Simulated scan of single mutants.
Amino acid sequence: MVRWEPGTRERLQAAALELFTERGFEQTTAADIAAAVGVSERTFFRHFPDKREVLFDGQSRLVEAFLAGVADAPADAPALDVVAAALHSGAGFFPDDRRSWARLRRGVIEQHPALLERERHKMAELAGIIRAALVARGVAEPAATLAAESGTTVFTIAFGQWIAEGEHRSLDELQTRVLADLRSLTASDAGRAARP
């Protein structure tokens, strides 16, 4: 009988990512992952419902981080400032020591359309949750949806930059820059629209 060891979940994740990278996602089984860590396949399934979830574990904690930022924003903050607070809080979920893992994870996901679709679905869920939190704060539609969707777009773009080879800036810094670009773009467009 295999005894429980601390860190089993993390070791399964590390082994899975290594195997997915070396062999391919489709060629790697839950049994392979379990064997690489020295646990039973049953132990794997105690931690993850399937091998796909190894790559998407942590979504609930990411959502919690974003919602903490929404909750911490001043009550009178405009919607985009609330989103900026959510982005700042969410960036804490990705310290620099997770960057290499995130790069490998993205490489695996980008090779499989079903995994890419799952990733997009997770971002859509996050946008919906942020939208609902904005509405609860009194932000009217369509501003709540525009702000939430813009926030997840900023996150997606900045995250792609953060995992790029040679990048050393923090995710928080990159998100701040991308959000500033968005604000500049919308301000320019608003200025043009106001001209006769």
Rank of each mutant, 00 (worst) to 15 (best):
T43H: 06
W4T: 14
E173D: 13
G128I: 11
D72H: 08
A148P: 04
H121R: 15
W101A: 13
A187V: 08
A133W: 07
D181S: 14
A158M: 04
A35L: 11
P6L: 12
T43R: 14
R120F: 12
T8C: 07
P142L: 04
W4R: 12
V83W: 02
R99F: 01
A194F: 08
D32A: 05
M1K: 09
A15K: 08
L104I: 05
P78C: 04
V139H: 05
Q175I: 02
G151V: 00
S100I: 15
E149C: 01
S170K: 09
A133R: 00
F93P: 01
L87R: 08
L126V: 02
R23T: 06
F56R: 03
Q27G: 14
A143L: 11
P196I: 02
A14S: 10
E18N: 04
K51L: 00
D50P: 03
A180M: 07
L62T: 07
E64A: 14
G92C: 04
F56A: 01
Q111D: 09
G69L: 08
E119C: 07
G90E: 05
P78L: 06
F155Y: 15
P6E: 14
E22H: 12
V108Y: 07
F44N: 03
S184E: 11
A30D: 06
R52I: 06
L17Y: 00
A65F: 08
R131W: 01
E41A: 11
P142I: 02
V39K: 08
S170Y: 10
A30M: 01
V135E: 15
R9D: 06
V139Y: 07
G160L: 03
M123L: 15
G151C: 04
W162I: 04
P95Y: 11
E165N: 04
G58Y: 02
L174Y: 08
R52Q: 13
L185N: 11
G58L: 04
L126S: 03
L55W: 03
R11F: 07
R169D: 12
F66L: 14
R120E: 15
V54L: 00
S170C: 13
E110M: 10
P196C: 05
K122N: 14
G151S: 09
P74L: 00
T152L: 07
A164I: 05
E141S: 01
L116D: 14
E173W: 08
Q161R: 13
E165S: 10
A102H: 02
A164H: 10
R52L: 02
A124T: 13
V154T: 10
R103Y: 10
W162S: 06
A86S: 14
H121E: 15
E119I: 07
V2K: 12
T186G: 00
A91D: 04
I130D: 07
A180G: 11
T29M: 03
E119V: 04
L12C: 03
I129V: 15
A132E: 13
D81E: 14
V83P: 00
G58D: 00
A85N: 03
Q27L: 10
V39H: 05
L179A: 07
A30T: 09
G166T: 07
F25E: 01
F56V: 12
R9T: 09
E26Y: 03
A79I: 00
A35H: 15
R118T: 15
E41Q: 13
D172L: 10
D97K: 11
L171S: 11
F20K: 02
A91F: 08
D189L: 14
R137Y: 12
I129T: 15
